[in-house]
Simulated scan of single mutants.
Amino acid sequence: MSRTPREIFESYLYAGTISRNADALAEQFTEDGVFEAPLMPVGAAFPRRLVGREEIRRAMAAYYARQTGDDRAPNLDKSGYVLHTTLDPDVFIAEIDTVFDGDGRTEEDVAVALVQIFRMRDGKIARLRDYFAPELVS
Rank of each mutant, 00 (worst) to 15 (best):
Arg57Val: 13
Asp23Gln: 15
Ala26Asp: 11
Asp32Ala: 11
Glu31Met: 12
Lys124Gln: 09
Gln67Lys: 06
Gly43Leu: 05
Arg129Tyr: 07
Glu55Leu: 07
Glu55Ala: 04
Tyr12Pro: 02
Glu108Phe: 05
Pro47Phe: 02
Asp77Arg: 09
Gly16Asp: 10
Ala65Asp: 14
Ala45Gln: 07
Ala62Tyr: 11
Gly123His: 04
Phe29Asp: 01
Gly123Trp: 13
Val112Arg: 05
Leu25Asn: 01
His84Trp: 14
Glu107Pro: 11
Phe118Ser: 00
Gly102Thr: 07
Tyr14Pro: 13
Ser11His: 03
Ser79Asn: 05
Pro89Gly: 06
Tyr64Lys: 01
Glu31His: 09
Arg129Ser: 14
Arg49Val: 04
Tyr12His: 10
Val82Cys: 14
Thr68Asp: 14
Asp32Ile: 07
Met40Thr: 01
Thr68Ala: 07
Pro47Glu: 05
Tyr64Arg: 08
Ser2Gly: 03
Val99Thr: 15
Asp77Gly: 09
Leu114Asn: 00
Ala62Arg: 12
Glu54Arg: 09
Ala26Pro: 04
Gly104Cys: 13
Asp88Arg: 09
Asp23His: 07
Ile8Leu: 13
Ala73Pro: 07
Leu136Gln: 08
Val110His: 08
Ala24Lys: 15
Leu13Thr: 03
Phe92Trp: 01
Asn75Glu: 04
Ala61Ser: 11
Ala45Met: 14
Phe92His: 00
Ala26His: 01
Leu50Val: 03
Leu136Ala: 05
Tyr63Pro: 04
Glu95Asp: 15
Arg129Cys: 05
Ala113Asn: 11
Ala113His: 13
Arg129His: 10
His84Leu: 15
Val42Leu: 15
Ala111Asn: 05
Ile18Asn: 13
Val137Met: 11
Phe132Ala: 14
Glu10Arg: 11
Tyr131Ala: 11
Val115Pro: 02
Thr106Glu: 11
Glu135Lys: 08
Phe46Cys: 09
Leu136Ser: 09
Phe92Ala: 00
Ile96Lys: 01
Leu39Asn: 09
Val42Glu: 15
Gln116Met: 08
Arg127Tyr: 03
Ser79Ile: 06
Gly69Ala: 06
Gly33Pro: 01
Arg127Gln: 13
Phe92Gln: 00
Arg105Ile: 04
Leu25Gln: 03
Ala94Met: 05
Leu13Pro: 00
Phe29Asn: 08
Val91Cys: 02
Ile125Glu: 00
Thr68Tyr: 12
Arg72Ile: 11
Arg20Asn: 12
Gly80Cys: 03
